[in-house]
Nucleic acid binder design. Structure first.
Lengths: 411, 411
DNA sequence: AATTGTTTTTAAATTTTTTTATAAAACAAT
DNA sequence: ATTGTTTTATAAAAAAATTTAAAAACAATT
């Protein structure tokens, strides 16, 4: 009932051959099936895995004995003798997801059945590219784990979302904490003592939305993270697309304008320079200086203190200036996304990130520009929706990525 | 020695269960392995398929008896007893690839080991969206098949490349021959009598280049077809990417310019309006009219008769005007492709299509713009090369697509 | 030229899996 | 309450696959 870690060890061992290998492989397939499709009967598993009933039964019983799988009783539908339903045992494994923002950290703990059992949001933290900042981050993670009631050895992995270029395969970060020779994931791992994966923030959010949010059967989906910058997670054939080094999806830096605004990436004319949350904040302040009025000034007497969240809040309270500027940004984002539609022919584009909280204020101008600038035959295929998970997408995605990587045969 | 069609029938039958199913599945894996990796020993197969030597040996012997696999004798490397090498029997299956251009058709016949056994290039043909034009196309294909020395039943499929929007899964074409209720592939199939697949021209070329051209181990590759229009084939994780309906890769119609040139797609400002072969031809004629000089005028006394091929030929003969205009187009294409690099983080971009015959005249300005407009960290990952198959990419790709679809378990 | 070492191939024994048959469970109709 | 139908679960028999052992093939060495 408690030998669960054994299975994950032998899952990733390369020593196994022949029958032993096949059995582990089949058990992995069963867990994956439970994880993706929910509970199932022995007959279901037998059918999808092309194994006989007795064999399937034997392996399910092994997983049951390992404590990874739980008997969920009889089904209630259908005629004839009712089968037992099996599914993942929620308490058999846990995963930690960490979302690192510029000014705070969000952390969540997820069980094996993708329920968030504990979350801690808005932990004050200053993201700097320094050793101290990294150290503080590790401390925050350790504190979170230590104050949770779950046994340490049941926490199988940690997923950390960072902005910028991340190579999850090697564990290297290229935008933050890139001052060590070893990959960042190994550094954190050695401090916290739990297997750690790094991921790009937008891609992790995308994965959360794919697996637990507004995605049903769609297999080719784009998730656009509209925040301070503009990021994207790409799902191709039901899987995240990384590109060669994990840098795919840099939609914020596609060349779009002939302006002279210098982007933080070093180039000029990037989409981000005129259409990101940062650009919106900049333009908002400029308009105020030019004499425009807004309800934001009631809250922030010094215009320098205005942050993106203030503008989003103002828009949702019908502030004309905020809505106007967000609409203008939406049109530009939509023109950029027309390119995405033409290139990816996606079934669904999900708008996420803090700006997505403005709902139709951002969605409609984007949809409009999409209709205007993309091939209509292709555009007709594409749904445009707002993230269902909202600000939970990041930690849910981070946890699920860890879970699903540990279940994957190729680690 | 001649019951080869049997296997392909049972491969796609859904009747099989249990051991029979698994055996067919394993044999399919073996054929796929031979097709992708070349000849192999029983030990190799046993290792990659995780089956025991006796079982592997038994199945190889069945394939041998079916005539699909051939004994290629002993290996010459290594110590110890030398194993037998097995591989595909070239004469056991054939595939026809048809490339439909605006003014001509190219057809090729490929054997099971991807050798082109017969090609017929430049068959005069006028592509119109009419019933007669479709009928003529079918006749050309039938003639080609009938004049080949291969038995009809050994030709397992036909692949047809068309420009425009194609949904290969349904067999519908949306740009040409779209006047029937039934899918176009079924119409052609019923005339020619052989299983027919439709594919977008650029995607088929891309597949040819991926499988038989300049792609080694790269798994994320873009193939850009620079011709009259600008098309693209996308390879993600070693497989073609289609998007929801097979319209992915429409790079020619991404919004790039604020010009007033109406694209044939109906929009303004598409990349194609200023950077395609059609645009180059238009600009070339305009410059001539403005008084510029070129060696093309020696060949074509009436400027109206000038075609893209003339300009390409002129460039390769150091004609300044041609080179100049191609360079300008290259810079614009490169700026558009910078977006591709940022979004896909590809390992390799291959330039194909007739314009790629100008070699570095088109490649270098593209490379230059790529360096200028894409994120340098991402761009550093990306190789930019010229197609190795040249004008053979289309028919090779069409044949290989048919072959590999027939080998795939999900047809 | 015989011996040794290495590896493939074949053959026999053993293990594993599937198939078939049977029992048990669940429920509807008689 | 009994009978029939349908499906699951278990047990025994049959089939199939793997494992182990032995033989065959060949290169390098003595």
């Amino acid at each position: 009932m408690a030998t669960n870690t054994n299975f994950f060890e032998e899952l990733h061992s390369t020593e196994l051959t022949g029958v032993a290998y096949k059995n582990v492989w089949l058990k992995k397939q069963m867990l994956t099936h439970f994880a993706n499709e929910g509970n199932a009967t022995v007959a279901d598993l037998s059918r999808t895995l092309n194994t006989s009933i007795p064999k399937t039964s034997e392996l399910v019983n092994e997983l049951l004995a390992d404590g990874l799988v739980k008997d969920y009783g009889k089904t209630d539908s259908g005629v004839g003798r009712k089968p037992n339903l099996y599914g993942l045992e929620p308490a058999s494994a846990f995963f930690v997801g960490v979302e690192v923002k510029n000014l705070h950290v969000n952390i969540g703990l997820m069980d094996f059945r993708r329920s968030l059992v504990k979350t801690s949001r808005g932990i004050p933290y200053l993201l700097n590219n320094t050793e101290e900042s990294l150290h503080t981050l590790c401390t925050i993670v350790c504190d979170f784990i230590n104050t949770s009631s779950v046994q340490l050895e049941k926490i199988l992995g940690i997923g950390i979302n960072l902005t910028g270029r991340i190579n999850y395969r090697t564990g290297y970060s290229y935008s933050f904490f890139n001052f060590h020779e070893d990959p960042l994931s190994k550094i954190i791992e050695s401090v916290v003592g739990i297997h750690t994966y790094l991921e790009n923030d937008s891609r992790a959010m995308a994965y959360g939305e794919f697996c637990s949010g507004g995605v049903k059967d769609e297999k080719n989906v784009l998730f656009v993270n509209l925040d301070h910058g503009i990021g994207m997670g790409i799902m191709v054939g039901g899987q995240l697309y990384y590109g060669k080094s994990g840098f795919a999806g840099e939609v914020g830096h596609i060349p779009m304008f002939n302006n002279e605004i210098l982007c933080h990436c070093g180039k000029k004319g990037c989409l981000e320079t005129e259409a990101s949350g940062a650009a919106i904040t900049r333009i908002f302040k400029e308009r105020l200086a030019e004499g425009a009025s807004s309800i934001v000034t009631n809250k922030r007497t010094n215009p320098e203190d205005i942050v993106l969240e203030d503008i989003i809040e103002a828009a949702n309270n019908d502030d004309t200036l905020a809505i106007e500027i967000i609409t203008e940004a939406g049109e530009k984002i939509g023109k950029g996304m027309a390119t995405l539609v033409n290139l990816f022919n996606p079934e669904l584009i999900i708008l996420g990130g803090s700006l997505s909280a403005t709902g139709d204020y951002i969605r409609l101008p984007i949809k409009n520009a999409l209709n205007k600038y993309s091939l209509s035959l292709v555009n007709n295929d594409t749904q445009l929706s707002i993230s269902q998970l909202g600000d939970k997408a990041g930690i849910i995605g981070a946890c699920l990525l860890v879970r699903d990587r540990l279940l994957a045969i190729t680690s």
